[in-house]
Design a protein around this nucleic acid. Structure first.
Length: 283
DNA sequence: AAATGTCGCAACCGCTCTTAC
DNA sequence: AGTAAGAGCGGTTGCGACATT
């Protein structure tokens, strides 16, 4: 395409931090002209940068509508959820966090969330150790208490403690700093798997409407705390409400539920009633 | 007050994918 | 179909600000 790179005059591109003047030039240019080709932007804008650098500066810093400052608890929760679903797909995550860039999310993950998660995993490992000691002592006394249940109980207790401590510090009145999945929010995350909106057309959507009350909070808690923090516990406890097949499907597919559950007969294990209704799965 | 360590963020680098020729 | 350039993405680095010793 065009002239060979070897034929181009080798321009000495400036590197490092952008000066306010450079920012102004780039901003002015890009607000007036939509870029057709990033490599031509620095030339036309009178900058000694390469196109790549201009693109990055615009996307990460100058673009209108960018949010700056600390991440809200809700944003944090969304990132944790999405990271669980997508892995290190920062740009895809950014699509679900308006005003945030992939770079911001990536940095926030590495500087905050990764450590937070590591701590929780450490806690979980500690609890599992406790759990194995406890179960070995009591295994002949109560056959209904499985190690999974116990693990979950211990985890929840531990997290409740930690949550209470965090609540004391929380400024915004959020009940917990632990990652909670907001089901409605999660569902509104359009197109996690590069599809059209979850809520459009013949939706087969998961909502929290159909479980009886105690089950609703239970499942939500299991999901939030278990899926996000402890997949093992999640698998174990949610079996109370989901069939094994569906559970596997959900976990293996990264929750591509919207169009995969049609026709599956789900039964609320406590009431025995179907929780599927007209292709909509109510949880 | 100076040296050292840690943290957070902006920017660069290298790779892959897409597109145009 | 092959090739080169552009665009985008994720990993990594460098540096300034702040905290600790």
């Amino acid at each position: 395409m065009g002239i060979k790179s070897s034929d181009k005059p080798k321009l000495k591109h400036k590197k490092g931090l952008w000066s306010p003047e450079e920012d102004q030039r780039l901003r002015n240019y890009l607000l007036k002209h939509s870029h057709a080709c990033w490599s031509s932007v620095p030339v036309n804008a009178g900058l000694q940068r390469n196109g790549k650098s201009c693109r990055l500066r615009w996307i990460n810093y100058l673009r209108p509508g960018l949010k700056r400052g600390i991440f809200t608890v809700q944003e944090e929760e969304t990132i944790l959820t999405l990271h669980r679903l997508l892995g290190n797909k920062w740009s895809q995550m950014a699509q679900h966090l308006p005003g945030r860039t992939d770079n911001q999310i990536k940095n926030y993950w590495h500087s905050h969330l990764k450590k937070k998660l590591a701590k929780l995993e450490e806690m979980e490992a500690h609890i599992k150790t406790q759990c194995s000691t406890t179960t070995s002592r009591s295994e002949n006394t109560d056959s209904s208490v499985t190690s999974e249940n116990l693990s979950y109980e211990l985890l929840m207790n531990q997290m409740e403690k930690s949550s209470r401590q965090n609540n004391d510090l929380a400024e915004d009145g959020h009940k917990s700093s632990l990652p909670k999945l907001l089901f409605a929010e999660w569902l509104s995350l359009e197109n996690v798997h590069s599809r059209s909106s979850v809520n459009s057309g013949n939706e087969q959507v998961i909502s929290m409407a159909g479980f009886n009350n105690h089950n609703t909070s239970f499942v939500q808690d299991c999901f939030m705390n278990g899926y996000l923090l402890n997949e093992g516990a999640f698998r174990g406890d949610l079996r109370a409400g989901f069939s094994n097949d569906l559970m596997e499907e959900m976990l293996n597919s990264g929750f591509k539920i919207e169009d995969q559950i049609s026709g599956i007969e789900l039964v609320d294990s406590t009431s025995g009633h179907d929780i599927c209704n007209n292709d909509v799965l109510y949880i």
